[in-house]
Amino acid sequence: MSEITKEQIRQPENLVYTKTKLLTDKALSYCPGCGHGTAHRIVMEVIEELNAQSETIGIAPVGCSVLAYEFMNIDMQQAAHGRAPALATAVKRLMPEKLVFTYQGDGDLAAIGTAETIHACNRGENITIIFINNGIYGMTGGQMAPTTLPNMKASTCPYGRDVVTMGNPLKMTELVAQLPGVRYVTRQSVHTPGNVRKTKKAIRKAFDMQKENKGLTFVEIVSNCNSGWKMTPIQSNKWMEENMFPFYPLGDIKVDGQLVK
């Protein structure tokens, strides 16, 4: 039997997946095993499905995804640390017909940007917030985040997060769900194909609601940081399931303006 060549495999009938045109060809700067790449992909796939490239403005944060604009093939603005919801507020108010989203990590959204996040949510800005929560500051090298779990180790809590002196992890998602201007809140993950599908559906729902001027939509993605957590990608996903999910349970928190019981 003759050997099958690459060219023979790369036939249209064998094609099961192509990268969305809304991702650039630039190699991702994320660590292998990190959830950011998948999250980027599904956000861009949804925008492609909506045929909304020319209508979308994305706001990149400061953190690991500071360079999101290098990978997302849409018009983007890079915000100061934590300020993305303020930028998005102005963009949407000045161009209400556009699709506007922020993409923020936990340090950006839940620490330095707490005020901007809560007030954009409270005003019910008609924007979508994509919140990647991996419980750590990844880019700066694994420091404690507002979302770091109790007793979890990080470079600025090397003996574990002591909640007495360092405070408890902040559940921003549950917090903003209480605000009337926030219409859809969900917490998802991208660590298995099934979860990726669910998260993509959630992002689609959030963007659909925005297009219908329903108010603020908020999608948290609980993710891993294998580098910051000092684990292999497989270990980190297992650790996430065993430790992050009990504290940050997956599922819808608020749907169509109603808190899920």
């Binding site: 706001i59 915000a79 100061a80 300020r83 303020a86 930028l87 507020t89 102005a90 963009v91 000045l94």
Partner: peptide, 9 residues
């Protein structure tokens, strides 16, 4: 920062 967002447009 709202000014930044608006000016960017």
């Amino acid at each position: 920062n709202m000014v930044y967002g608006g000016a960017s447009c």
